[in-house]
């Protein structure tokens, strides 16, 4: 059992959860709950939204206002929730396929609007729930059930995508740094007052991805992520060649004076009412 303030945020009757033994997604849920507990956000004012997939089963386990939407659409639902009730703290969790393939359009536009939502992309490089098909983050050459000869599609860099689309907080960690995940998530949740925060957490799926790519045990993946993570400050001193295959972790964007969408919409209301 986790510590009391974290346990309070769990619908314990549904535990143990659906995820495979050792699944990185559990590490992420744990970090999100520690962050929410530390920030002491009133439980009734927390909304956890998700799309469809392994990642998106998370809201069911969290005792808050939870919204399990349709595949790829979580951020669009969450946009409506936030506009209707800007006081809610929304943590929107999604997978790499969910968030950047079928939901890619909603993702970039939520970034552009800079709406006060914390989007956590749980990137395990695969469609896990449907049986291991290639996703937009499956590395080139890696094997998947729909890439039996190795993935041919180039991958998305989710953080660069978010930055380019206008997110005002962008950071990355891997599940091999659980404490760092928690710290980044806390900042990203607080950033909701300033706008859209994207946290990519590189997770793993040993069951569907690992099995086909010589990393079939949880620990193989955990060590892979640990060994290949490079802090941004160090990465800044490295060459592109040296960074090949590495995962750069840290904070990439943090615009302190960004203006959040629902706040800016309040100004629209003021203008309309004055007219």
């Amino acid at each position: 059992m986790p510590r009391e303030d974290v346990k309070k945020l769990l619908r314990t009757k549904f535990m143990p959860h659906i995820w495979c033994p050792g699944c990185g997604h559990g590490i992420i849920m744990h970090a999100i709950l520690r962050a929410l507990a530390d920030l002491k956000i009133p439980q009734d004012q927390i909304c956890i939204s998700s799309g469809i997939g392994c990642s998106s089963r998370m809201p069911g386990y969290i005792d808050a206002c939870t919204l399990h939407t349709a595949h790829g659409r979580s951020l669009a639902f969450a946009t409506g929730v936030k506009m209707a009730n800007p006081g809610l703290t929304i943590v929107n969790v999604m997978g790499d396929g969910d968030g950047t393939a079928i939901g890619g359009n909603h993702f970039i536009h939520a970034c552009r609007r800079n709406i006060g939502i914390t989007a956590v992309v749980m990137n395990n490089n695969i469609y896990g729930m449907t049986g291991g098909q290639a996703s937009p983050t499956t590395p080139e050459g890696a094997f998947a059930s729909t890439a039996p000869y190795g993935a041919v599609d180039p991958t998305f860099d989710i953080c660069k995508l978010a930055e380019g689309a206008g997110a005002t907080f962008v950071a990355r960690a891997t599940v091999a740094q659980p404490a760092m995940c928690e710290q980044i998530l806390k900042k990203a949740i607080l950033h909701q007052k300033k706008g859209f925060a994207v946290v990519e957490i590189v997770s793993f799926c040993h069951t569907q991805f690992g099995r086909k790519n010589k990393r079939s045990r949880p620990m193989d993946n955990f060590n892979f992520l640990k060994d290949n993570s490079v802090m941004k400050a160090k990465a800044d001193t490295m060459t592109a060649e040296e960074l090949k295959g590495k995962i750069i972790i840290g904070e990439f964007v943090n615009i302190e004076d960004a203006r959040e969408y629902t706040e800016r919409y309040d100004e629209v209301i003021a203008r309309a009412q004055k007219a």
């Binding site: 939407t69 669009a76 946009t79 409506g80 809610l88 359009n105 536009h109």
Partner: peptide
């Protein structure tokens, strides 16, 4: 005092609408 949002596509339009209804 109401809210209007032009979404990025048709699916986003109904998604935001459902979300806003859930929030009351």
């Amino acid at each position: 005092g109401g809210k209007f949002v032009q979404m990025e596509d048709e699916i986003g339009g109904i998604a935001a609408t459902i979300g806003a209804s859930i929030a009351g």
